[in-house]
Amino acid sequence: MPEKSREYAVNAVLALGLLLVPLWALWAGEPFTITLATRIAILALAGVGLNIALGLGGMVSFGHAAYFGIGAYVAGILAQHAFLNTPVLGLPGSNQMLTIWPVAMLISGVMATAIGALSLRTSGIFFIMITLAFAQMVFYFAISWPAYGGEDGLPIYVRNQFPGLNTMRPWDLFLVAFGVLMVGLAFSALLRGSRFGAALMAIRQNPERAAAVGINPYGVQLTAFAISGMITGLAGALMADLTRFTSPSMMAWPMSGELIVIIILGGTGRLFGPVAGAAILVGFEVTFGGMTEHWKLWLGLVLLGAVLFARGGLIGLIAGKERHG
């Protein structure tokens, strides 16, 4: 399987590159490059989450910004309560990432289960529109709910902490994000190889046949959707710490679009697709954003080109046509 081994090589290059470039930046005294690499790692993690629903399960969610934003708000809200030393729902706040992450995953998971349970009653184009509409509902709620800043958002004055590291230092935070991304990728790989992953892919290809061999399509898809929301929520919590800020715009519809862009640019269904996609998107934003105020026009044209002429995304271009590896 030459394509398969070529994809492994691409994955290795991506993982190493994502580690070595910021390492070089650390040595060269370019802290912003480290920040960018951290951003790529976090967006890639959000993409890994979405890829479970979208790439493996064929569920095109245009509403994953909701879970991303919910994760970010969990980090922001817990940090604020820890900072002010006030309880939230009777429990203390926290500024420890290791406490915040499970809570962020839990709450985005619950939300994904609720929205998924309703949305999965339909499929195809319905599913796209419904997930978008529900995400927009969460967005409007965040804007008009004054307790945590409403549209102004919620600042995180000091980044939440990770044992043994100083997360205010760009390199330390990068290591955290990179580590979590690698765990997320490993989990995603395991999921693909598992019986659950096989069932999920079988449902994507033919739900009737899957049901005939004893798989419960609704249950399997809902579980996958919840897991997908949880990982994207975790990425949101990390993003809040990177920007030291949470705002409703993290759950607005363009963010959902960006997450889909990341997956497709990298290569739908590819394990490392989100990493490649996030690197392309962030690189594009930084390069063209500084050059022209019309950078969104060029981004749109590049995306159009990618859909029309480069169907497998970057990894597809390099490693060949085989999909969903």
């Binding site: 095109v60 245009f62 195809g124 889909i260 862009v261 497709i264 749109g300 995306l303 159009l304 859909v307």
Partner: peptide, 11 residues
């Protein structure tokens, strides 16, 4: 639908 979503988003 995924490709359609991305292309029209780009539009």
């Amino acid at each position: 639908h995924l490709d359609q979503v991305l292309a029209t988003f780009a539009l």
